[in-house]
Amino acid sequence: MSDPRQEAFLQRIREALGSDRKVAQGGPEQVHGQPQSPEVITPLTGRDQSELVQRLIQAGQALHMQVRECADNEAAANTLVELATGRVQAGTGVVAWDHPLIRELELDQRLDQAGIDLAYTGWQGSPTTDVERRKQRTRIRAQVAQAFMGITSADFCLADTATLVMKTRPGHARSASLVPEIHAAVIRREQIIADLGQLYYLLTHDPDQIQEGLTNCLSLISGPSKTADIELCMVYGVHGPREVYLFVLP
């Protein structure tokens, strides 16, 4: 692609570097990080996984993220409904990713019984035109904006830093984990990995991850929104959620 402006810009850089310019010869870029062993691609099970969960719970505590292990879907659903009924404000509702793990919890019926609206942030029907899609996006946006709680899943959870890793896919609104005051995430135990290093290794070595790529927006979320901009006093819930919950299914 010929872009004269870009060419001139890059040419200026080449001239600036002169003989100091050094470019890796073909192939993948040199990896500077610590080499990881291939074992990290296979999910850790049993005792290793338990240890990770403990690390996650501890890290989460330090960051004001509550981590709850749930015995099964029923337990998770009940806790979520309890959380919602305890926090609901008049004229607000819940939004949730249109995600299999969340659908399985059958939250819409349960919340409906509690008198709380639940809206999935997925396409209704199969919109085929830009106009239709824009209309639906407007609907979803309005629903997210008046929601007091957003329920999502995640791709991974990093135990060391209590970080939720979320790619962007259809039906999984980015704003669901951002705009409402409460963010609740539901994942499976096996999705918990150790740290950022492992994540990046997976992203660059696991064939499925490589194929999908990061998607056009990859979010790493470690706890609720916070600031210390006023006299270094920590306050939660500046722009993003004030409370973050993680429910871990077996």
Binding site: V144, P170, T215
Partner: peptide
């Protein structure tokens, strides 16, 4: 800020894809 990792680390690679519901 003497943190292990910032609260939000967001990697953006382009506009929302045609089939994404927000962005």
């Amino acid at each position: 800020a003497a943190q292990n990792l910032a609260g939000y680390v967001s990697s953006v690679g382009g506009p929302a894809a045609w089939d994404q519901v927000d962005g």
